[in-house]
Design a protein around this nucleic acid. Structure first.
Lengths: 195, 195
DNA sequence: GAATAAAAATGAACTGGTTTAGGAAATAAG
DNA sequence: CTTATTTCCTAAACCAGTTCATTTTTATTC
């Protein structure tokens, strides 16, 4: 039971759970280990769980008609990842979610979550709050993509998420920020030659 | 009490409320009328309520450093609108929310909502579900902006939301889709000369 | 319903970022 | 350690979408 504690702690930041509730909740949490380059979500398959990252790094991305990759999200320790749309509508995923390192996850199955949301209504509040924050984040990202240049978005990301930038391949970062790898090189070159 | 019924009905699509709960909820809902070009949210002021559109049309947009406008959202009848980030964190807004027509709203104050979420926990579920859907929508929009050309995004919008396209000024639509008014003209011209 | 302001169209010059194509460095695997 | 594979860098040609400047059309207002 101890190994799923990180998720119990995570939820406890938002709502107060009794010991009984914690124990009950823990029965639904499962540890999963995945190797680098392994997929935990693939297009065409319904996303069956949400995953909390205990150790490692992940990337969620779409491959478009021309075969180009577009990164929607990253996740490192203490973050969650899934194909959100596939999960909540229980329809086939459009994203790949791939381990960028050997990783350890705590997973919650969709049906189990539905079940314990009924059993412990307090968890609705937890879900609501983290979803609201994620929504606010995505709205900001959308506006940032509209208003800022490629270089400004790069600077913003580096100052906020340098921990992630250090751990993910450069093409993944470029595709998250919405421009080509080549252009990322150009930006970085511009900076190093300046200083 | 009858005039706030649309919001009661809206919520009832997601959760079952008793008559007592409906009556209680109704006491927190307020009708507001606004004229075309009037702002219901302005940068610098904390967004105090979420608004359901009974009649009319709205646009939420950001004005960047160069004075350019970027539309984050539209709302017509049976939609909600606010500066979401400002509302949930109760911090100064960054968006303008402006009436595009003479309109009628049903508004819920932030503090009142916090209160009745405590009193009627069922509403947490309602909030969770609509927030989840909005998040899924925004994720799709982000990816659409990455993967599709300006013309493809225009076509997609026209096929899904022609009702909105008909009611909002062209510069507002262009700034929602993420390109210039001039380019929208060019796209439209390309289409009419083809057919 | 004339006057004025706001919105939409047009076209030419321009630019931020892409594409293509190649080579250099770093990682992974036997 | 050596080879293969993946990742990263560079540079020139290119293009989707912008900018700027002007005109036409459509709403608003008195």
């Amino acid at each position: 039971m101890k190994e799923v504690q990180p998720v119990i702690d995570y939820i406890s930041r938002y709502v107060d759970l009794t010991d009984a509730e914690k124990t009950h909740l823990a029965t639904f949490l499962k540890i999963t280990k995945v190797k680098k380059r392994q997929f935990i979500v693939q297009p065409g398959f319904v996303c069956k769980h949400k995953s909390y990252v205990v150790k490692g790094a992940f990337r969620g991305y779409l491959v478009d008609n021309e075969g180009k990759e577009h990164t929607l999200s990253f996740a490192i320790e203490d973050w969650w990842i899934s194909d959100y749309s596939s999960l909540i509508y229980q329809e086939p995923a459009t994203l790949f979610v791939e381990a960028l390192e050997d990783s350890v996850l705590i997973q919650i199955e969709y049906e189990d979550e539905q079940k314990f949301l009924e059993e412990i209504p307090k968890l609705e509040k937890f879900e609501r709050i983290i979803t609201q924050r994620s929504l606010a984040f995505h709205q900001k990202r959308l506006l940032s993509n509209f208003t800022k240049t490629a270089e400004e978005r790069y600077d913003e990301f580096m100052s906020k998420y340098s921990a992630i930038a250090k751990r993910v391949p450069q093409y993944a970062l470029a595709s998250y920020l919405g421009f080509s790898t080549e252009y990322l090189s150009k930006i970085r070159n511009r900076k190093t030659s300046k200083s």
